[in-house]
């Protein structure tokens, strides 16, 4: 029997009032693999990530981490479970009242009660890993450009050496060169940690670069999943339309045509 998937979602559903966002997501990620979920804006990608992270509670369905139900893990030791996760948020979500290095060290100091001096050393090492100097560590998040904020967010996500890392649109809103820098950093950081990752994006260049496997979400369901290098032969109209960025096809945007 093959090894059990590291993360597994079975028929996960989530609605907000009358609005059905996730309509039965089925997904499996193997240990050490990098899965990229692609899909248009507002299709429920962030909601899916937040369900896996435990920030949102699914209405039904099961999520297992390393073969154990997440609900059980969360009930027993919520902080222990979170310690296994790292997350890079779409807008970086840095704490603007504390300096950059404290942002990176936050999980170590507040979450794990590490000594400040020790956490500080780790923070500066992680900042170095994402190509930021010690001077940047002393600045406040508001003083940084978007690309630098994303890199700080990445350093914060990997600071506690998590076994699973989530990336929510890591390259959205960046210029193509900075986007590629971030992609390279993600690949190298993840390789160094040997972590399992789930990323969501609508940037195909980014997806091709960081993915072992790609899945496509549409209307709250996974409509295709396969190895990253097979996406061009998916034989799926929705996937083809998305990766080629065409307005015409089975996916219709709610836009009034003249």
């Amino acid at each position: 029997m093959a090894e059990q998937p590291h993360i597994e979602l079975e028929d996960v559903r989530k609605s907000f009032g009358p609005k059905h966002v996730l309509n039965g997501i089925n997904l499996a990620v193997d240990r050490g693999h990098s899965l990229v979920v692609i899909g248009g804006s507002g299709t429920g990608k962030s909601v899916m990530l937040k369900c896996i992270l435990g920030l949102l509670e699914p209405d039904s369905g099961s999520i297992t981490i390393g073969g154990k139900s997440e609900v059980a893990l969360k009930g027993a030791e919520p902080d222990q479970l979170m310690r296994r996760f790292g997350m890079l948020f779409q807008g970086a979500a840095l704490f603007d009242s504390i300096p950059v290095w404290e942002n990176v060290a936050f999980g170590l100091i507040q979450g794990q009660k590490m000594e400040r001096t020790e956490a500080r050393d780790i923070a500066f090492a992680k900042l170095g890993q994402v190509g930021l100097t010690a001077e940047v560590g002393e600045l406040y998040p508001a003083e940084l450009s978007g690309g630098m904020q994303k890199r700080v967010g990445l350093a914060r996500a990997i600071a506690a050496d998590p076994e699973i890392i989530f990336f929510d649109e890591p390259t959205t809103g960046l210029d193509p060169i900075m986007a590629d820098v971030i992609n390279d950093l993600i690949v190298s950081c993840v390789k160094q940690l040997g972590a399992t990752t789930v990323s969501i994006t609508h940037d195909m260049a980014s997806a091709r670069k960081i993915a072992d496997d790609i899945a496509m979400i549409y209307k709250g369901e996974i409509i295709w999943q396969g190895a990253a290098d097979t996406i061009d032969e998916s034989d799926n109209d929705h996937v083809d339309q998305f990766i080629h960025g065409r307005a015409d096809g089975p996916i219709q945007m709610d836009v009034l045509r003249p």
């Binding site: 920030l55 979170m82 603007d96």
Partner: peptide
Amino acid sequence: VTEQIDALTTLSTNPYRY
């Protein structure tokens, strides 16, 4: 709205407590 409260949770810090 900038997801900083979610970020607290992912850094093992209970936002109600913090």
